[in-house]
């Protein structure tokens, strides 16, 4: 671990918080001034595992992280993906014990922010408090949407939905545009996220490609037919709760 206090290091966090709520100048400065420790991790390294009591919040600055669990039989379910600006374990500010595992997916740059600094940040800053609260609520909303998707949609819809969501989430924080975005998980990892076998996932992927909806190559997603992909996915971005300005521009871009 190495200390780093460059004033712009935490910009991804600011972008993420401001994708749901506007902060004032003092609040922005306070977010950027959060004390933190930078850690570079390789792909598939555990950051926190079930039962641990983290003392820091883990902010993703670069790369993708994921939450996962395993069944007794050894089948993995990827619960969610996290990108730059996300704090996957924010809820452990108030829930002391990890109930799932958090790991990098790709090589990642992570910033660890002490819990006491996060708690001090929100004192006297209701805007930041609201932004963090909203961030946690949106995380819950994303999980509701996943229950809907995994419970009632089939492989093709689940796959299309995941692509729509990861594009929109990256777009909201400036990591994607023009219907192209990074999508680094392997097919086996994507299959474990949508809850089908890798063989079935490959079939869905081929179907979407044959319909010219998407091309997935070299860890990069290109969407060829956004309205078609949205229809297959039954995707409505309302559950992501981006602020109204961003949602309007998202719809314009996809029209």
């Amino acid at each position: 671990m190495a200390g780093s206090h460059h004033p712009q290091t935490l910009t991804p966090l600011l972008r993420k918080l401001e994708s749901v709520i506007r902060l004032n100048d003092e609040e922005r400065r306070a977010v950027l001034a959060l004390p933190h420790t930078i850690r570079q991790v390789g792909p598939h390294e555990d950051v926190a595992t079930v039962g641990e009591r983290p003392a820091h919040c883990c902010l993703v600055l670069e790369g993708w992280a994921h939450r996962y669990g395993y069944t007794v039989a050894g089948d993995r379910q990827i619960l969610s993906f996290y990108i730059a600006g996300d704090i996957p374990d924010l809820q452990h500010l108030y829930l002391p014990v990890m109930d799932h595992s958090l790991a990098s997916l790709t090589a990642c740059t992570l910033a660890f922010i002490p819990h006491e600094a996060m708690r001090a940040l929100v004192v006297g800053r209701p805007g930041v408090m609201a932004a963090l609260w909203r961030d946690t609520l949106v995380d819950a909303s994303v999980y509701r949407e996943r229950i809907m998707t995994l419970g009632r949609r089939q492989s093709l819809g689940r796959t299309a939905h995941l692509f729509c969501e990861m594009y929109m989430r990256q777009r909201a924080v400036g990591l994607a545009d023009n219907l192209c975005c990074p999508l680094p998980p392997t097919q086996a990892e994507l299959a474990d996220a949508v809850g089908v076998t890798a063989v079935h996932f490959n079939r869905s992927l081929r179907t979407l490609r044959a319909q010219c909806r998407i091309v997935l190559q070299g860890g990069h997603l290109t969407i060829g037919d956004w309205p078609g992909l949205v229809t297959t996915a039954e995707f409505d971005p309302v559950y992501l709760h981006f602020d109204e300005d961003r949602r309007r521009s998202g719809e314009r871009a996809s029209a």
Partner: peptide
């Protein structure tokens, strides 16, 4: 055709993947 393939721990996993794939495709 499958040109990607899947890594399997043993033959039990081969069968499990085959059966789950078929039932998943059937559901869809």
């Amino acid at each position: 055709r499958d040109d990607t393939g899947a890594e399997c721990r043993d033959l039990d996993e081969v069968r499990a993947i085959a059966v789950r794939t078929l039932t998943g495709i059937a559901a869809e």
